[in-house]
């Protein structure tokens, strides 16, 4: 795509591009290349010499039971966060789309959690589910249900899923509601006149028409669950107990910044990069499709 009428300065466009390209080269492209290079290097324990080891770091990472375990944790985590936040958001959006009073007020009251930092969401839920001082956590323990997210793997994972999903509902809600409201009312009214009830109208008209939005949100939510939830995990469980909440991204951080295993961390980075590239490719194929849906 290109404009027909343009300016014909020779130097100016380069000057305009300079800041963006400089930042991109220094802080994006160069570190990414570094990561690829480091992932083929093995550093001795003192950090004095390095050795080129081909794909040894990758085999080490991929055969490490801890890493394979964190793939499992990440899969469960991402699927739960995505399912929970998208499901709830769709429910709220369908309800808010109904012809009821006070719709705007409900909308406003559901949208603001978008502004919360994931780590802040984590602290809010921690305060409620803390085993000794939390309103719900303490009540559970007093009622004879042993609850301690610091000791119990399943409970730890549930709590980070809950906090992460809670924060993401509003984002999904905004998009679902916009998609639902862009469906012409006449189509839905015609179906109603033909005798289709609300459930039938939802599954035969609304749901298929918001499919492109749902697909877009699916990608965004998986990306969110993979990367943006680092704050939730770091604030709440630090990946524990054991490795029960160590997602892939938390592992990269731990390997690189805490354990100082540069080669291993770089190999993990490159694996994640491949994953993001695949996701982005899928997302942009979808953008093309979206054009046809209008």
């Amino acid at each position: 795509m290109q404009r027909r009428v343009i300016f014909d300065d020779k130097l100016l466009p380069y000057l305009l591009l300079f800041p963006q390209v400089a930042v991109t080269l220094v802080f994006f492209i160069w570190p990414a290349l570094q990561a690829v290079w480091q992932s083929t290097q093995l550093q001795d324990v003192f950090g004095l010499s390095t050795q080129f080891v081909w794909f040894e770091n990758y085999t080490a990472v991929l055969t490490d039971p801890g890493y394979v375990g964190s793939i499992r944790v990440t899969a469960i985590f991402a699927a739960s966060v995505t399912g929970l936040s998208m499901g709830l958001a769709l429910l709220f959006a369908v309800m808010a789309d109904a012809n009821i009073r006070g719709r705007e007020a409900y909308q406003a009251l559901l949208i603001w959690p978008y502004a919360l930092a994931p780590a802040v969401a984590a602290v809010l839920w921690l305060f409620i589910f803390h085993p000794q001082i939390g309103m719900v956590g303490r009540t559970l323990n007093q009622a004879g249900v042993p609850w301690d997210y610091k000791l119990n793997n399943g409970q730890a994972l549930s709590l980070v899923i809950l906090a992460s999903a809670w924060k993401q509902v509003s984002y999904n809600f905004i998009f679902f509601l916009a998609a639902l409201q862009s469906i012409p009312k006449s189509v839905i009214e015609a179906a109603a006149i033909d005798g289709a009830g609300p459930r039938r109208r939802f599954f035969t008209i609304q749901f298929p028409l918001i499919a492109p939005t749902s697909f877009f949100l699916l990608i965004v939510n998986v990306t969110y669950a993979f990367f943006d939830t680092f704050g939730v995990i770091h604030a709440l469980t630090q990946g524990g107990p054991g490795t029960a909440t160590s997602t892939l991204i938390y592992n990269v951080y731990k390997a690189g910044m805490v354990a100082q295993d540069l080669g291993g961390s770089a190999a993990q980075s490159v694996i994640l990069m491949a994953f993001v590239i695949a996701l982005t490719a899928v997302q942009f194929r979808f953008v093309e499709r979206r054009v046809h849906y209008g």
Partner: peptide, 28 residues
């Protein structure tokens, strides 16, 4: 608004940063 040599190279270079969130290149 301009047409100049390397325009598409720069465009793709900027585009590619979408695929490199800080989380995947922490250490470097």
């Amino acid at each position: 608004f301009f047409r100049f040599p390397g325009r598409m190279v720069f465009f793709w270079m900027i585009f590619i940063t979408l695929m490199l969130p800080v989380e995947v290149r922490i250490v470097p």
